[in-house]
Design a protein around this nucleic acid. Structure first.
Lengths: 217, 217
DNA sequence: TAGATTGTTAATCGATTAACAATC
DNA sequence: TAGATTGTTAATCGATTAACAATC
């Protein structure tokens, strides 16, 4: 029974602080107040203080937090100092984009190999990552003890690929399909819901347009 | 002062129901109960009932909802029946992946043109979408009255590109950069926080490993 | 010192879950 | 009829915001 108790929302905001802090660091700022971060990111100041408090960083009244310290505290808190390897499955256009995504490095994650169901892609290199046929997945994964699986396959193959990952010892799945994966309860799954995100955008816009039209009439 | 009052979370879950319902429809299911959806998607049954109630669909006790009706109700509620055009900026690997993304069609959104800062890309076609130089953006956007902007440019160009979109009459931005865009308050912005998502995955995994190691010791 | 800023405790708000009457 | 399932009202839970004492 872990204490954990870090709100998911806090976890989601911390990278945003981090990103802003990097900009401030580049700009030569040595100190920053929670209020300034709050203002810049549209988050309530008290919320920012609570979030920062979770990382263990301490600020000084009237001065704020030291930018360097805060960056380091967030980095440690998010475990970006520990490294993990990842296998990517699905070297289509999305997979290709992910292999070039600079965010991995910062999060301490390295894509060490990619896999694709089309055998003709095997052997190719994309953004410095070699592509293997699916048949090699389980063996390589077990041998290299890779713990992260990135799922960028078409809808229809999503669950089967997840099953393969689980069999091969993967502990965390970054899921880009809109399928609700059925996996053992202790598996970590992080869903990127592009579909839902787009749906929300579309709906808000349609309502806006409708309201505008109604107002004019 | 609109009544709106649809929880953001409900909006986020509706596409998941939709997706599952499509599968059920394909499988030939005519009816579905809220409990079945709840079970399949790991959502509390009462939550599902509330969400479905918002769409206006009515179920019959003992039988459940008619799958066809429910699909139609969600589609209408999410305004997927109204169509909008979008311009994409940034034809790099992420932009390329997005041009091939099948989710747009379902959400009633069409990418009608793409733009890129590298002039040598101009004139090319990617997934059926023509690429233009940035200089054409404002003129084309105003003339065609495009309302959605998809932001897939490098970090450093994000804010400037958003500014250009705003000037050109864009009303909603789908933002893939991790920059907190500064835009007029009535602009619709939907952020896809890949960075945060990955950070959370990495953290959970690192904690898991650490705990496992501690347990062994 | 005066005042800005911190960190924490209490109040509010919204979302999720429980309980239950209605109904096919 | 009996029982599954609906939709709604009430209770709980967690996250956000307000209030405020501590402190540099």
């Amino acid at each position: 029974m872990r204490v954990e108790s870090v709100p998911e929302q806090t976890l989601r905001r911390l990278p945003r602080y981090f990103h802003m802090l990097e900009k401030l660091q580049e700009a030569g700022q040595a100190f920053v107040s929670a209020s300034l971060l709050a203002e810049a990111l549209d988050i309530h100041p008290t919320q920012v203080r609570k979030d920062l408090a979770m990382t263990g960083s301490q600020g000084r009244p009237k001065v704020g937090h030291r930018v360097d310290d805060l960056l380091a505290a967030i980095e440690t808190f998010l475990s970006w100092d520990s490294r993990s390897d990842a296998f990517l499955v699905g070297a289509g256009s999305l997979g290709t984009a992910l292999m070039g995504y600079p965010g991995f490095e910062k999060a301490g994650i390295t894509i060490v190999a990619a896999f694709d169901a089309h055998p003709q892609k095997a052997g190719k290199m994309v953004h410095g990552v070699r592509i293997f046929p699916m048949s090699k997945f389980e063996n390589l994964c077990t041998r290299m003890q890779v713990s992260i699986g990135i799922l960028a396959v078409p809808e229809a193959a999503a669950q089967a690929t997840a099953d393969l990952m689980v069999c091969s010892g993967i502990q965390a799945i970054w899921n880009f399909s809109s399928t609700n994966l059925v996996v053992p309860p202790d598996l970590i799954v992080e869903n990127v819901e592009l579909y839902a995100s787009l749906a929300i955008l579309g709906r808000k816009l349609a309502r806006r347009k409708r309201d505008a039209a109604a107002l004019k009439a």
